[in-house]
């Protein structure tokens, strides 16, 4: 299946992916409306000592988050791990178990994670289409 891959070699650490992610999942009609909002993106640029790369859900084949979910809120559909916010009780077991730190609390009290922009209006990953240097790609692994 197609997954998001980060290419450290080309990542500039510009953080545009974080803003594109936050906008894609905000439901807002223009990015300008993010003004004054502290964004909480599902993708995050790790950086240290001049090295950058963007980390988002790996959509693991044997995901620890799904195994650990106590309510069945996390499920795999066609390889993509989705979150059902109706079922989530916010126990944060998934956050503790994700080895990549790619699940985080959402403003709504439950958790959020990358769903490859399949559940928002973008349809395909906004971080990938907005990356200026092809440092994030969406391709068959």
């Amino acid at each position: 299946m197609k997954r998001i891959y980060a290419r450290e070699e080309w990542c500039l650490g510009c953080h545009l992916c974080e803003y594109n992610c936050a906008f894609a999942n905000s439901g807002l009609d223009t990015m300008t409306k993010l003004k004054g909002i502290k964004i909480n993106p599902r993708i995050q640029v790790e950086e240290n000592d001049g090295i950058f790369y963007a980390v988002s859900c790996r959509h693991c084949e044997e995901p620890l988050c799904v195994k650990g979910c106590i309510t069945g809120a996390l499920s795999i559909k066609d390889g993509v791990i989705h979150i059902n916010k109706e079922k989530c009780v916010g126990c944060f077991t998934c956050i503790l178990s994700c080895p990549y730190g790619c699940i985080m609390p959402a403003e709504t009290g439950v958790i959020q994670k990358c769903e490859l922009c399949q559940t928002n209006s973008k349809g395909s990953p906004a971080c990938v289409s907005g990356c200026p240097n092809r440092a994030i790609v969406f391709e068959e692994g």
């Binding site: 500039l12 650490g13 510009c14 953080h15 545009l16 803003y19 990015m31 300008t32 993010l34 003004k35 004054g36 909002i37």
Partner: peptide, 13 residues
């Protein structure tokens, strides 16, 4: 200023 969201991309680039 109405459009700037202070994402700091300009600063980093």
């Amino acid at each position: 200023i109405d459009r700037c969201i202070a994402c700091r991309v300009c600063e980093r680039q």
